[in-house]
Design a binder for these strands. Structure first.
Lengths: 326, 326
DNA sequence: CGGTCCAGGACAGAAGCTGACCTGGACAGG
DNA sequence: CCTGTCCAGGTCAGCTTCTGTCCTGGACCG
């Protein structure tokens, strides 16, 4: 009998009875008691929690949590697990294989009725064609960030320049220090909300551009996120100047009621001018793109500023007017 | 990693029921493919029935019905569960509460070490401000669709007109019949891939506009999705005329290399004209919006057609030229 | 026909395993 | 208090096993 199959036998023996004295296991498995002790250690290292009681009538016992009791989900929970773990790969974290395996493990300890329900729910997650794949974040980075948040440990990390990947260019990595507060995901991208110790201000870091350094720094006293609500703070930041800072921002007046513009304003800011007119401030990567983005409302409009936007309007006017130029 | 734990990992990988090519397993387990073959042999000797298929797209697969040892959650699986179930509400299905409860149930059966790991991973999912909330799909609808797919039962359902919600107007609901094949999610929206029995063609239905009727129809023999690959089929359909049909489609020539346009083309189609020029066909909700969308590339361009697009170009030219008009 | 995949033999070197022996600590009962 | 039973863990020699690197061969697909 090989070592591995002996370990499996040991596992199943431990499941059948509460207490197994070492010498008994030794004779049952036909090995020395020293080997039994080593086997138990091995199982423990693999994550099985085996408790041992000393003295007479002692022995080894498999703890709950290893011998997973049947997971008693209700129907909704089953669906949630099935859906969540099948769609997980689209979340941007590098969880595809782990999620599939977790689903298998969960499936295994389910009562038959729920298992059938689980099996029925087959879901395919697809990315729309042409949609760029969002950068995936390694699991261990997520875990590291989460634990520093929990431990309130100052985070030291290298941060890549905007629109560079972590691995791209070692030169582009800048060391930073921050007090991490929240791990946030949105649209398949991951962000860390933290207090930047070098800038003395709140920042939103892209996790895919971040590489934690060990060891962590000293403990810190948590601060209150501005507004008290992470959700609101992050939403506001997406409009703001940190992560999705647009290099070009400008304002137009649109001949359209504010309520018609609002749903399509994206991260822009809409203010009503009068009943039929509103002001929209938005951003883009170039002045031309910004000017073009206002055109999609398909109504008359005026560029307010800055001057770059006004001249971009002029350029666009010519572009739309004269084929091929300027 | 020891041999034994590698065998358990292998088991848990095989359990996910995909076909696993030997070389892939080898890299996952960080051993040579020869060792993988030996591991598979070992598992077979222990009684697991593992099928192997030769040739390209072959691989190893664990036969169902094998009695597995009590598999444990490992670290990665824990993270996957934590992340997936916390982010689940963003998936568009109505799972928020169920997912939270499922997480609690799973938490309870975890060994302490993993439970701590689970607890550390606190994730916030936020929707960007201004991002319209995707319609949520009730769980029971998902379950109904999934089970009709599994049972190969013809689906009878009411289908709401485009951009209407199910509850909006009972008059707008049209009865339909389809052979359901796949449940697909993308960007927080849910779709059903099915063969429409009234139109004798493949269709992609928005689940949020669909209301199943009971009882289901007769069984059907499954067809092969065009191309054989659901993923590719759905991606193609998103460009096509079914779900995301743009009422206005047109073509322009952009003075920009195709490779620079492709990443930003969205669901449009890019064809290279020459080294510095390409042709882009895209769609939008209005001719004005379509014309404006081409402007974001910030390069000279020409409207090719249809005539509506050409006149939209003219209108835009005037809009960008003259403040406030026309 | 070449590419991809599984199947399995041979072999040297490395790694792991086992049993024997040891000390030590926890526990229960006479 | 002392003894017997049990777990915990260190060490060490000897041996089994495992692994990677060869190799050949067959099945399958386009």
């Amino acid at each position: 009998m090989t070592t591995t199959s002996r370990l499996l036998t040991l596992l199943s023996l431990l499941q059948t009875r509460r207490d197994w004295p070492g010498p008994l296991l030794a004779s049952r498995l036909d090995v020395s008691d020293r080997t039994v002790r080593r086997d138990v250690d091995r199982l423990r290292e693999m994550g099985y929690s085996i408790r041992a009681t000393m003295g007479p009538d002692g022995g080894y016992r498999l703890d709950v949590g290893s011998e997973l009791p049947p997971l008693l989900f209700d129907d909704d929970q089953t669906v949630a697990v099935a859906v969540a773990l099948q769609v997980a790969p689209a979340l941007g974290a590098d969880v595809e294989e782990a999620a599939a395996r977790a689903l298998g493990t969960i499936r295994q300890v389910m009562p038959a009725r729920l298992r059938h329900r689980l099996d029925a729910l087959e879901v395919t997650a697809v990315r729309r064609a042409g949609d760029p794949a969002p950068p995936t974040v390694p699991l261990d980075v997520l875990v590291t960030l989460a634990s520093t948040i929990r431990d309130r440990a100052t985070l030291r990390f290298d941060y890549a320049a905007r629109h560079a990947a972590v691995g791209d260019d070692p030169q582009a990595l800048a060391p930073r220090r921050a007090e991490p507060h929240h791990l946030v995901t949105s649209h398949g991208r991951w962000y860390l909300v933290g207090w930047d110790l070098d800038h003395d201000d709140w920042r939103l870091y892209s996790v895919d551009r971040l590489r934690p350094r060990l060891p962590h720094g000293p403990r810190f006293a948590p601060r209150t996120v501005p507004g008290g609500d992470v959700d609101a703070f992050v939403s506001a930041r997406f409009k703001g100047s940190d992560v999705d800072a647009w290099p070009c921002r400008g304002t137009v007046v649109l001949h359209l009621p504010a309520r018609d513009v609002l749903p399509f304003a994206g991260d822009g800011t809409v203010t009503a001018v009068d009943e039929h007119t509103c002001r929209l401030e938005a951003g883009a990567w170039s002045w031309g793109a910004l000017a073009a983005s206002f055109g999609r409302f398909d109504v008359p409009m005026e560029a307010v500023g800055p001057p770059e936007l006004v001249s971009a309007f002029a350029t666009l006017a010519e572009r739309y007017a004269s084929p091929g130029g300027p």
